[in-house]
């Protein structure tokens, strides 16, 4: 009896939490819809009088090249680092060579380092191989620093597949690549979705690498947004519309594929 009553009361703190998590989004969306004469500090919490989309159109026009750059970086980076992670995970779970566990630990550490500790050489190195400032350079960086987490996720998944399955396939005459292609790859499609989504989100939201490694014409959307926001020159309603546009791709991925996003997130805390 008591328990059901406490359960009923639980909705009060839960609704308060919902308000806390939604406040920034509320402000972002309503301000984005407001017309120029409507934006005043006094009425910032009020709903817009009209639902004009001009701000969103204007923001889109301004951010379109950067949104495109982001897609150009993020899609190949997510796909390639997932493929590498899957190959690594397969070998490190099912074909352990001598020292495989040490190598795995060393790779894993790469996911926790503060990237500041590699930035100076990174800039020098990218410059020396002629990729500094370019989109391919940024793709390469995202692929390489994505390897630890993608390897971790796939290794944990493949480790959960019974060894008997691999042994049985070996007896049937399948070789290493055959077992991967015919047995493990097909059943790891959900893991691919998890890793792709996670890498897509991480790379999309990246700021540090983009701001250091790209030239203005190759700026990704986060760098461009940081440049137009916060200042006094661009009106608030336009800034908020631009922010929402920059968040939209990852937000949509979260809304439609949230289940997979959560699994990627938990892999990051080493809990598989």
């Amino acid at each position: 009896m008591i328990r059901s009553r406490t359960r009923y009361w639980s909705y009060i703190p839960l609704v308060l939490l919902v308000i806390f998590y939604l406040i920034p989004i509320y402000i972002m969306v309503i301000t984005g819809f407001k017309a120029g004469d409507e934006i005043s500090v006094k009425t910032m919490w009020d709903l817009p009088k009209t639902m004009g989309v001009e701000n969103y159109l204007k923001a889109f026009k301004q951010l379109a090249p950067n949104l495109l750059n982001s897609f150009k970086v993020v899609i190949p980076a997510a796909i390639l680092s997932s493929i590498l992670g899957s190959l690594n995970g397969y070998v490190l779970a099912k074909w352990k060579f001598k020292g495989a566990d040490v190598i795995f630990t060393l790779i894993l550490f790469g996911m926790f380092i503060p990237y500041q500790s590699v930035l100076i050489p990174l800039v020098q190195f990218m410059d020396s191989i002629g990729l500094y400032g370019s989109i391919p350079g940024l793709i390469l960086v995202h692929i390489i620093y994505g390897i630890p987490i993608t390897t971790l996720t796939f290794r944990n998944y493949y480790a959960s597949i019974p060894n008997e399955l691999v042994e049985a396939a070996k007896i049937d005459g399948a070789d290493m690549l055959g077992i991967y292609r015919k047995i493990l790859l097909p059943i790891s499609i959900p893991s691919f979705v998890v890793v792709l989504i996670w890498q897509f989100t991480q790379a999309w939201n990246d700021f540090l690498f983009s701001v250091i490694l790209t030239q203005p014409q190759n700026w990704t959307v986060t760098v461009a947004l940081n440049n137009i926001s916060g200042g006094q020159i661009i009106p608030w309603n336009l800034q908020m519309a631009a922010s929402l546009l920059a968040a939209l791709p990852t937000l949509l991925v979260y809304i439609f594929l949230g289940r997979y996003f959560l699994r990627g997130m938990m892999a990051g805390s080493l809990k598989g």
Partner: peptide, 17 residues
């Protein structure tokens, strides 16, 4: 889902707000 969604958005986006 609602409590976790902020993790999908960049600080660069929400920082301004």
């Amino acid at each position: 889902s609602l409590f976790i969604f902020p993790m999908a958005i960049s600080y660069i986006v929400t920082g301004v707000v």
